[in-house]
């Protein structure tokens, strides 16, 4: 197959035409979107040989200068690879994008993803589709997922890579191209750019349980008995373990057995700078007592309401008016 794409995977090549203003430099992926992306690998159920990969659109936001990109949503776009022809369902891509945009106004098409880590002929064609289509005038970002080892073909933890591209070869309107009647489609040099996974606070809380599940044989976490008090007690245990480790560490560092890390020292210093003399213990005690009492009062009132409710439910006897007369 004659490949119209040029594969140069080196970050140090000079980007010939990419205007520096709209060139993304950094890509951040929300952890929830990352998992969605990974799960798309399973969703390529097509057994026909017309698909060697699952591809789809990445939605997200771009910073004003286009240098930072956040990936927030993704969806699969059906396509067909036949001989050297590539069919992408553009109508699907557009209408799906509009659906997402309705739910979240700020979303833009920022690029595409592929479950094939290889940059081949089709990659260029896909890229062209996004570059000339919904991404213009910005450059699309390509995100690839690799879940098989290159050599052994074994399943590995998915590797996420992001690329930007620049067109290679002669500018399409140059005289030579016209003279030679060269067709120039999908020729890109892909340059890897760094990406980072971000976690929001809520995501972290859920991730904590996902990670717990990941250590188990059945890879699942049972939501039954997910009681707040139990959760708290396990968190408190974790904290006290951490404190023990820290204590042990600082003691050994103080004794000179190990060399202390300056960063940890600074962190402790800046966070534990309570001057005891400034805290009036009696006032603190009083405030604390008040808070405990408030909490208890609230609990008491809540249980009163529940009792009232129970009573009311028993006393509120709903009968049909006809029955009332019959009695």
């Amino acid at each position: 197959m004659s490949s119209p794409a040029l594969h140069i995977v080196k970050p140090n090549i000079v980007v010939p035409l990419g205007s520096s203003a709209d060139t993304p430099i950094k890509v951040t992926i929300e952890s929830s979107t990352l998992l969605q992306l990974i799960e798309t690998i399973y969703e390529n159920n097509d057994s026909t040989p017309t698909q060697t990969r699952t591809v789809g659109t990445l939605l997200g936001t771009r910073s004003d200068d286009g240098s930072n990109i956040e990936v927030k949503e993704c969806y699969i776009v059906p396509h067909k690879e036949e001989d050297e022809e590539l069919t992408i369902e553009e109508a699907f891509h557009i209408s799906a994008f509009h659906l997402y945009k309705r739910a979240n106004q700020e979303l833009q098409v920022i690029g595409w993803f592929s479950t094939s880590p290889e940059l081949d002929a089709y990659t260029g064609l896909f890229h062209e589709f996004y570059a000339k289509g919904s991404c213009a005038p910005y450059q699309p970002v390509l995100l690839t997922l690799q879940y098989r080892d290159n050599d052994s073909g074994e399943i590995i933890s998915p590797i996420v890579k992001t690329y930007i591209s620049s067109p290679v070869g002669l500018p399409p309107n140059s005289g030579i191209v016209r003279k030679l009647n060269l067709e120039k489609i999908g020729s890109y040099a892909f340059v890897p750019i760094p990406n980072e996974v971000t976690y929001s606070k809520n995501e972290l809380t859920t991730l904590k349980y996902l990670s717990e599940a990941s250590k188990k044989e059945d890879r699942s976490f049972d939501l039954k008995g997910l009681d707040e008090l139990k959760q708290m007690s396990s968190t408190v245990n974790q904290i006290s373990d951490l404190i023990k480790i820290l204590q042990d560490y600082t003691e050994r560092a103080a004794k000179g057995e190990i060399e202390g890390d300056n960063r940890i020292g600074q962190l402790l210093l800046s966070n534990l700078n309570y001057k005891l003399s400034e805290v009036d213990v009696d006032d603190f005690k009083k405030d604390f007592e008040t808070h405990v009492n408030d909490t208890m009062l609230l609990q008491y009132l809540a249980s009163c309401i529940k009792q009232q409710l129970d009573l009311s439910a028993k006393l509120t006897n709903f009968i049909t008016p006809e029955d009332a007369v019959a009695d």
Partner: peptide
């Protein structure tokens, strides 16, 4: 229950 797929499991 929350279920990790094999690949998610590896990534997590």
């Amino acid at each position: 229950e929350i279920k990790n797929s094999h690949l998610t499991n590896l990534k997590v």
